[in-house]
Measured scan of single mutants.
Amino acid sequence: NQASVVANQLIPINTALALVMMRSEVVTPVGIPAEDIPRLVSMQVNRAVPLGTTLMPDMVKGYA
């Protein structure tokens, strides 16, 4: 199964993503693939992302 990017902490709106904020986990539904974690670093989220939430492409500015 494909691992997705999951929030490792609460990520406030407009926060630039850092490695420590993300982990990979096999979840349903599938979100952003875990292999894209390096690409996500320094991109901003466009909403608050609670701990344990799967990151979806529409949550990250400039990802989709």
Results as ranks from 00 to 15, higher is better:
A16K: 14
E25Y: 06
T28E: 11
E25P: 02
R47K: 10
S24I: 08
A7G: 02
Q44K: 11
N14I: 03
V26W: 10
I13E: 11
M21L: 05
M22Q: 00
I11H: 01
I13R: 13
Y63I: 04
A16Q: 12
T28V: 10
L19M: 13
V30F: 12
V49W: 03
L17N: 00
E25C: 05
V45I: 07
Y63R: 03
S42L: 08
T15G: 05
N14W: 14
N46E: 07
T15P: 00
E25F: 07
S4T: 04
I13M: 14
P29V: 07
P29C: 04
L55H: 01
L55C: 02
P57R: 08
M21A: 05
L10W: 14
V45W: 02
T53V: 15
L55P: 01
V6F: 01
V41Q: 05
T15H: 07
L10N: 15
A48I: 14
P12Q: 09
V45R: 00
V30H: 14
I11V: 06
P33C: 05
A64I: 15
R23N: 07
M43V: 04
Q2F: 13
T53K: 09
N1R: 08
Q2T: 12
V6L: 07
D36P: 00
V45D: 02
M43T: 04
V6W: 02
A48H: 15
N14M: 07
P29F: 03
R47Q: 11
G31R: 02
P57A: 15
M22C: 03
S24K: 12
Q2E: 09
P33V: 06
N14C: 06
V26F: 08
M22L: 14
A7I: 06
I11Y: 00
A7L: 04
D36M: 13
D36Q: 14
I37A: 09
P38L: 12
P29L: 04
A64R: 04
L19R: 13
A18T: 15
L55D: 00
E25R: 12
P50S: 14
A18H: 08
I37P: 01
N1F: 14
N14V: 03
L19S: 13
D58E: 13
L17E: 00
I13P: 10
V5K: 00
T15Y: 07
L10I: 10
V60H: 00
P57K: 08
A18G: 11
D36R: 07
Y63M: 05
N8Y: 04
T53N: 10
M59T: 05
T28D: 11
L55K: 00
L40I: 10
Q44S: 12
Q44D: 04
V49H: 01
S4R: 00
R47A: 09
A48L: 15
I37C: 04
S42E: 08
I13C: 07
P38N: 09
I11N: 01
I13Y: 11
L55M: 12
V20D: 12
P12C: 05
V49T: 04
D36K: 10
S4F: 02
G62I: 04
N8L: 07
P57C: 05
Q2R: 12
S24N: 06
P33Q: 06
N14S: 08
R47F: 07
K61V: 13
V49R: 03
Y63C: 04
V41T: 06
V26S: 10
P33A: 10
G52D: 12
V20C: 06
T54P: 06
I32A: 01
A7C: 05
L55T: 01
A3Y: 09
L17F: 02
P57E: 06
S24W: 10
I32L: 05
V60R: 00
V30M: 12
Y63P: 03
I13F: 14
A48E: 13
L40A: 00
A7Q: 02
V30D: 10
T28F: 14
A48R: 14
L19G: 07
L17D: 02
E35P: 08
M56V: 07
P57V: 06
Q2C: 07
A18F: 06
N46A: 11
T28A: 11
E35H: 12
I32T: 01
A64N: 14
T53C: 06
V41E: 06
Y63V: 04
M56L: 14
A18N: 13
V26G: 04
D58H: 11
V60Q: 00
M43F: 09
V26D: 09
P38H: 11
P12L: 09
V6T: 05
I13V: 15
G62Q: 09
Q44V: 12
V5P: 02
V5Q: 01
Q2I: 15
P38S: 10
M21Q: 06
T53A: 10
A64H: 15
G52F: 04
M43G: 03
A64E: 13
E35Q: 15
G31M: 02
V5H: 02
V45T: 13
S24Q: 14
Q2D: 08
S42W: 08
P50I: 08
T28G: 07
V27D: 03
G52Y: 05
N8Q: 08
D58R: 07
V20A: 14
M22V: 08
N1H: 13
N46F: 07
A34S: 13
M59W: 12
R47Y: 07
V26T: 08
A16I: 15
V27K: 09
R39E: 07
L51E: 15
D36V: 08
G52W: 04
I32D: 00
P38C: 04
D36E: 14
A64D: 15
N1T: 13
T15V: 09
N46H: 08
L10E: 14
N8D: 11
Q44H: 14
L17T: 00
A18C: 06
L17V: 03
A16V: 14
G52A: 05
A16L: 13
N46V: 11
V6S: 01
P29R: 04
L19H: 09
A48M: 11
A34R: 06
V49F: 03
I32V: 06
N1D: 14
M43D: 02
L17M: 06
T54F: 03
V41R: 05
N8I: 07
I13N: 15
A18I: 11
N1C: 06
G52Q: 03
N14H: 08
Q9K: 12
V27N: 03
L40S: 00
V30L: 14
E35G: 12
T53I: 08
K61W: 09
P50K: 10
V30R: 12
A3F: 11
V41S: 03
V49S: 02
S24G: 13
T53F: 10
L17Y: 00
L19F: 12
V41C: 04
P50D: 09
N8K: 11
I11S: 00
T28C: 05
R39L: 09
M22N: 01
R39N: 12
S24L: 08
M21P: 01
T53G: 10
L40G: 01
A64M: 14
M56F: 10
P12I: 05
A34M: 07
N8M: 08
S4Q: 01
